[in-house]
Amino acid sequence: MPFLAVTVVAVAAFLPLVVTSSYILSVGVTMFLYLVAAMSLNVIYGLLGLLSLAHIAFWGIGGYFTVIAVMDLGLSFWVALPLAGLFAGVVSIAVGFPALRLNRHSFVVVTLIFALLTTLVARDWVSLTRGPMGIPGIPSPYFFGHEIAGAYSFYYLAGAFALVSLLLLYLFFTSRIADTMRAINQSEDLARSQGVNPTAYKLLAFFLSAFFTAMAGGILAFNQRVIDPLIFDFFFMQAFLIMVIVGGRGSFVGVLVAGAVMSILPEVLRFSVDLRMVLYGLALLAFVTWAPNGLAGWIRERREERLRSELRQ
């Protein structure tokens, strides 16, 4: 497993030296950002079973915050980006308190309302966001005097960001903190009877999911060089959600694989955006029907069946 991971990272790192097509590199950029966004959705939805429709809001907030911080406040991109993560994290706590008061269903509703509200703000608070026209002419970030512009350098920026984020998230998914979240997801009453305070874990998960997604959204905006309310498009939400479900809720490796395949495959097949939605929809239907726990769940269930028959003997 570690060998495979190192190989994949090495291949990804040397790819731009071999492949010069900026189209392929831009697919890579998208994949890196989607992977981080999907994996952070996997924290709140996968580990805790809390379907956060606010995920798309944090993605967009991250984009707008970074752009406005750089263009209007004059901050460096490298400061603005983590600030955007922190800002989204703080917002997630503020939304999380009321959203978590009742139950899982109210959480979905409150996060949906929040997502709709942020879209409205992006469209109607014209003095801040320039409304539906969006903010064009986003400047390139500079890295030690080196301009980051074009697919080649964004490939490395997004790739390095994804590598660091996914390493941190991997450490998280394999920690006891994540285990306690899985426990809460399986039986909140049992966890409480054992001394766990579920709200603290839910807020932490929500914070982390907002933090990483917002930074991914920030890089997306600078890559596009323009940001408008379309960053809140439900397409993104749907894509992240399907990656998590197909990969297997709560599984790091499953979502990593599903995220990569679902980012690359439609490009390879040259599907239009509409056709891509159809493909995603079909994949979702197939998995919900035949493997509701995703790739990882399917493999786990096969293993369990074998274990069951072994132990019976």
Binding site: R176, R182, A183, Q186, S187, D189, L190, S193, Q194, G195
Partner: peptide, 19 residues
């Protein structure tokens, strides 16, 4: 009430965790 998706070992370790 147990954690059905966890192993027996994980169930026991999890029960000790908050303490």
């Amino acid at each position: 009430h147990i954690y059905e998706a966890m192993t027996l070992r994980e169930n026991l370790l999890q029960a000790a965790r908050p303490f």
